[in-house]
């Protein structure tokens, strides 16, 4: 569903913003968190950890897009990543706009 303006009850809802904690030296670079993060927040970093793997890191500029869903914590086989709630922000026009863009993108992907 797409929105054409800010919903009237937008005040009732908020968007959580998560803070990511990555324990670099535990990661084995399997890439599960990177692939399955619903918001595409993570990316493989260039640095090495003690075991020689590349741990994930938040994509520069996307740090604030983590929604604290904790999927990365549940799917990480190494107990190397988790998120905590930083704060919750109010819904704004931009969020709705971004959501619409996401829906448009998904539809395009689906039809291809």
């Amino acid at each position: 569903m797409r929105f054409w303006r800010l919903p009237l009850d937008a005040k009732k809802y908020s968007i959580p913003v998560g803070e990511l904690h990555i324990i670099d030296d535990r990661c084995k670079g399997c890439g599960y968190c990177i692939e399955f993060c619903p918001n595409g927040v993570l990316v493989l970093s260039k640095k090495f950890n003690v075991k020689g793997y590349h741990p994930p890191e938040p994509l520069p500029g996307k740090e604030m897009e983590c929604v604290n869903c904790n999927l990365c914590q549940v799917i990480c086989p190494e107990f190397a990543i988790y998120s905590t709630l930083k704060f919750s922000k109010e819904l704004s026009e931009e969020d709705i706009e971004r959501y619409n863009e996401l829906v448009r993108q998904r539809r395009k992907d689906f039809h291809e």
């Binding site: 890439g31 990480c76 086989p77």
Partner: peptide, 21 residues
């Protein structure tokens, strides 16, 4: 005891994690 001995990309860690969750 962590890191465990399972290979990188092995799904066993996910199962252990799910049990804990």
């Amino acid at each position: 005891r962590i890191p465990h001995i399972w290979c990188p990309g092995c799904g066993l860690g996910v199962v252990l994690n799910a049990y804990i969750q």
